[in-house]
Structure formats: structure tokens, C-alpha cells
Design a protein around this nucleic acid. Structure first.
Length: 136
DNA sequence: TTTCTGACA
DNA sequence: TGTCAGAA
């Protein structure tokens, strides 16, 4: 839908994003340096984030809390975008459930990778605990 | 006032 | 990551 343009419309300065995501300006800028997010800029070089950027940052925050490093997060975000390249375009009557479904499936994949990739011993249980809410 | 970049305890 | 400086 034309809803995407609104989702991608740069609207909020870093101050708002801080409150919305709970992340510090330092973190947000750091993530940007590592290309986890690419906010637009105003003429005065101020960062402007879109709703999509906010969602992205929330996911990054979630992964950080789970102990995932920048490289790992980058890979996950890359995956998420890989299956995205606009599957639909014209008249799309129904599209709501697709978003959540895809995210959930990817989360399972990503987490599986995490368990395999990171700390073979203890961290797995912590990750599983965090994931419990995704296993219906 | 808010945000930006760069740098360091 | 937090925080300070100096400039927009």
C-alpha cells in the first residue's frame, strides 16, 4: 500500500527516538556508524528517523539485550530485508498477517543461528527464555 | 534548546 | 557506553 511511504517518511529527531526506543543518543549514533540504521538528514545535518527506523532500532535493542553483537545483528537485519524486496505492488486487499508471520519465522531462524553461533554452553537457556513468548 | 562530531576517564 | 567540548 501507499502506507509504506508514511512508514519510511523521515519525521522524528533523535530526541524523540530516544524516548520511543529507550536507547541513548550515543547508542543510536553508534548503530548508525555500523550501518544498522540509515536515518535521513535535514539541511542542518540533523538526523530524521522514520517509523521503519524506529522499528529497526527496537529490534536492534532487543537483539542487543539478548547479547547479540553488531555483526550478528547486521546479518539478521540483512536476512530480514532479503525476503522483503517488495513482493506485492498493485492492489493488495489483504496484507496484515504477512508482516508478523514473516518476522516470527525469521526470528526462529535467527535464534537457531544464535544458539549455534554463540556461547554453546549457558547463553542458550537465556536466549530460549527470551524467546518463549514467540513459541505459541 | 537540541543535535552533531570527535575524543577520552 | 557515558560524557564533555565546541560548533551549528
Amino acid at each position: 500500500m501507499a502506507d509504506d511511504i508514511r512508514r519510511n517518511m523521515p519525521l522524528f529527531p533523535i530526541g524523540i527516538v530516544m524516548k520511543l526506543t529507550g536507547l541513548s543518543a550515543r547508542q543510536i549514533r553508534y548503530y548508525e556508524q555500523h550501518e544498522l540504521v540509515k536515518p535521513a538528514r535535514t539541511k542542518g545535518n540533523q538526523r530524521l528517523f522514520s517509523l521503519n527506523d524506529i522499528d529497526r532500532l527496537l529490534e536492534i535493542k532487543s537483539l542487543i539485550e539478548q547479547g547479540v553483537n553488531i555483526a550478528g545483528i547486521k546479518k539478521m537485519l540483512a536476512m530480514k530485508e532479503a525476503g522483503k524486496p517488495s513482493p506485492e505492488a498493485a492492489t493488495e486487499p489483504k496484507a496484515e498477517p504477512k508482516r508478523k508471520e514473516l518476522t516470527e519465522k525469521e526470528l526462529h531462524e535467527l535464534l537457531k543461528q544464535q544458539v549455534l553461533l554463540h556461547r554453546p554452553g549457558q547463553a542458550a537457556t537465556l536466549i530460549q527464555g527470551e524467546l518463549s513468548r514467540f513459541f505459541h
